[in-house]
Amino acid sequence: MRLLAGLLAAALAAASCGDGDGSAGSFEGLTVFAAASLTEVFRQLAPSATFNFAGSDELATQIREGAPADVYAAASPRYPDELFAEGLIDEPRVFATNRLVLIVPADNPAGIDSLDDLAADEVKLVVGAEGVPVGDYARAALEAMDRADVLENVVSNEEDVKGVVGKVATGAADAGFVYATDASAAGDDVRAIEVPQDARTVVRYPIAVAVEAENEPQARAFVELVLGEEGQAALAEAGFGRP
């Protein structure tokens, strides 16, 4: 598995070649592991960095296996807290919040206007898999509303939030739970329906530098960028909430 990590490092290094420098300065050579929901805004903040976007849980597994992450940004405190306790990353700091929404395809073929409609027969619902933050938030939200029964209509458990967006945007599924920012990033292909908010479903994004970061100064600079004015402005523009 160390070998696997080494190969991953080589692949990531190869993938990072050719990126242009962003306005935020050069992050050439920096490797950031980030939750899939951060894809658009992180790329915009540091175009020259190398990103590995995936489900927060999958990224945590990769870091445990020795993958060469300089920075880890997750969509839930659960995995950063675990990795911090294991001595793999510095103390995580929350840099943004998000909220859960329900999305349907633009033409809304199943006629879904509220959470209650999700329980109808033959509705194809897509959520994140168990352990994937967006899936866990969705389950918590449904339980908080006493509507766990709609989970019977789940036809696919996706490994990250972009998987859910893709299934709904292509019309393969009738509805899916994603973050508000992913719903706006998907543009006209999907329509978002608000979900009653609950304390358990406030989405917090922590970020931390990896203890074994190979590019520590750049990693610290990236974290400061995200927590600083420019990062916060970009996050706000993408629809994220303040920490």
Binding site: G131, S156, G166
Partner: peptide, 23 residues
Amino acid sequence: MFAGSLQGVTQTLPLAIYAQLDI
């Protein structure tokens, strides 16, 4: 992409490898 991943319904052996990796 086309069938999704649901245990017992559409989750084949290769998909289960992917899903179980972090579980």
